[in-house]
Design a protein around this nucleic acid. Structure first.
Lengths: 139, 139
DNA sequence: TGATGTACTTCCCTTTTTGTACGTACTTCC
DNA sequence: GGAAGTACGTACAAAAAGGGAAGTACATCA
């Protein structure tokens, strides 16, 4: 399908543009991908799908986020041009968040991924207790 | 499209199955999503797309992974039933990794997300220097 | 009058993640 | 004969991520 794994981690001399490749550590596309797939970034994009929400709305919908993390995530996503922030200059603060066109496309992909996982959860869980899954960094 | 944000963070009393929702912090689906969207998990799934690769192949293709992280990521993904590990009992170790059918589906979604980002990289980068993007955790 | 809600920011501290280096057991290549 | 390659496990330590509490400025509600 796509042609992602084409240039093997190469960042070789290129006259104009290096051709984006998430597989090479220094390609900016990898950073964007990280933002989108970050712990809270993913959920923000999902929740914001085709909606306009305020900070507190987002917080209520995304179970477990802290103020600090939500704010930070929103800033990163805004800087990447995925979401738009609209602040009204009123006394009790009122800020609205929505997806940009590009953000909407990204959101769709993320949403389809999440839906796939939710739909197959039973299958995932069924094969869980195969091996103890190598306790990571035992404490 | 999908029906994800349906039950608002609810984990209320349900007779049988709680209905998967990545938005509720304790739903197992969120954990799976995290594995899939983890820093290296995403790249492993992309690289493994319709291929059979050995540990060292994976390491070479995924720029920047350390042995430890790659091994750990592979174990988690295997435990989730997304990839299959086949070890040959030979003297210089020989192990092959490939996607399970479910893993292949997940891989496709991830791949489409990554492709979208790569394809729009210029657009992402163009609007970058808007605001200093709020230096996170200033040191 | 006092509590509540809004949208964050900042500080401080704990938890988690990640990297580096080393060891293994044996074979093949130079 | 020594170097390199294979597929990890483990210990140690640095770096990053994350949580919690407090503060702001004012208006509305009871």
């Amino acid at each position: 399908m796509a042609h992602i794994g084409t240039n093997e981690n190469a960042q070789a001399a290129s006259p104009s543009l290096p051709k984006p490749d998430v597989l090479s550590p220094d390609c900016p596309s990898r950073a964007i991908l990280q933002h989108v797939t970050s712990r809270w970034g993913t959920l923000v994009l999902i929740v914001l799908d085709a909606k306009v929400l305020r900070f507190s709305d987002l917080k209520r919908r995304i179970g477990g986020v802290s103020d600090r993390m939500l704010a930070q995530t929103l800033q990163v996503l805004e800087a990447d041009g995925l979401i738009l922030r609209h602040a009204f200059d009123v006394v009790p603060p009122h800020v609205e968040y929505r997806l940009t066109p590009l953000g909407a496309e990204v959101s769709n992909r993320v949403l389809s991924l999440a839906s796939l996982i939710e739909a197959n959860l039973p299958q995932f869980l069924s094969q869980r207790p195969k091996r103890p899954a190598a306790a990571q960094t035992v404490r």
